[in-house]
């Protein structure tokens, strides 16, 4: 690093997007929310649509998304982000509208709003961060919690007989005629992050076409909720989450 001749010839290959604020994230160390925030803002900056983008923040860990995303944001009541986004998009049809929701918001209290929004084929992008747990309130069981996963409200593991099966929201909405693009991505490795960014880019591009809803599930980690350190949470995600929530496109325009 002391070699000045090398330092003089360096060119910038990566910097964080200007649409992401300089405020430090309030998320726990290692949380995938930070990566998801950054990817969405990178895409917004690359497309040059920060003036035309309106985001809808959920309730959950990412409730303060509007502190970090330097685009117009609207806070919605718990689970109702899709309904609010519907209203925004119908009033301002030339804007790019996205919702950013966790699994407690989108798959639990907001199930009805989500399914009906996708079924109507509203021209919005829905980003669904799935970490199989309620992170903000202290790691309680969510609808997406895996079978036998230990949480603070299922201390002996999730029993299917009493607590039901994990809800695969993305598979569910892929069957709806209003869905135009449905995919499941992750943010745990550099390669997965690259693929996830492409999916987010597609979701924004498809809004121009007025063909239906884009739904991007992002499988993420929650080290604090899972009671493991960040490095182990990546391994836990690969071993347990990915078999239940396999990555890939579920509905691609022109193929289904």
């Amino acid at each position: 690093m002391e070699d000045n001749t090398v330092l003089e010839d360096l060119e910038l290959v990566y910097e964080k997007p200007h649409t992401l604020s300089d405020t430090a994230f309030h998320y726990c160390p290692g949380c995938g929310h930070g990566v998801a925030h950054r990817l969405i803002m990178e895409v917004v900056e690359e497309m040059g649509i920060e003036e035309q983008t309106i985001g809808v923040a959920p309730v959950g860990c990412s409730v303060f998304a509007y502190h970090y995303m330097m685009v117009d944001m609207q806070e919605a009541a718990h689970g109702r982000a899709c309904a609010v986004a519907t209203g925004i998009r119908r009033l301002l049809p030339e804007k790019y509208v996205f919702t950013y929701q966790g699994d407690g918001d989108l798959a639990a209290i907001g199930t009805a709003e989500t399914i009906h929004t996708v079924n109507r084929g509203e021209n919005i992008a829905i980003f669904f961060i799935n970490n199989a747990i309620y992170g903000m309130t202290g790691g309680q069981m969510a609808p997406t919690t895996l079978c036998h996963q230990i949480t603070s409200t299922s201390p002996y593991g999730r029993e299917v007989e009493a607590m039901g099966h994990p809800l695969k929201m993305t598979d569910l909405v892929a069957h709806l005629p209003g869905a135009y693009y449905v995919t499941r991505q992750a943010v745990h490795t550099p390669n997965a992050v690259r693929k996830c960014k492409k999916a987010i880019r597609n979701a924004f591009e498809y809004q121009k076409l007025h063909k239906g809803t884009s739904f991007v599930e992002i499988v993420s980690n929650c080290p604090s909720g899972w009671r493991v350190n960040p490095a182990d949470s990546i391994k836990w995600l690969e071993d347990n989450m990915l078999p239940m929530y396999p990555l890939g496109d579920l509905k691609v325009p022109g193929k289904n």
Binding site: E15, K16, F25, G30, H33, V35, H188, P190
Partner: peptide, 10 residues
């Protein structure tokens, strides 16, 4: 790419 807190400029 993997940094959750966007600390790196490369």
């Amino acid at each position: 790419l993997v940094c959750p807190d966007a600390v790196f400029t490369v």
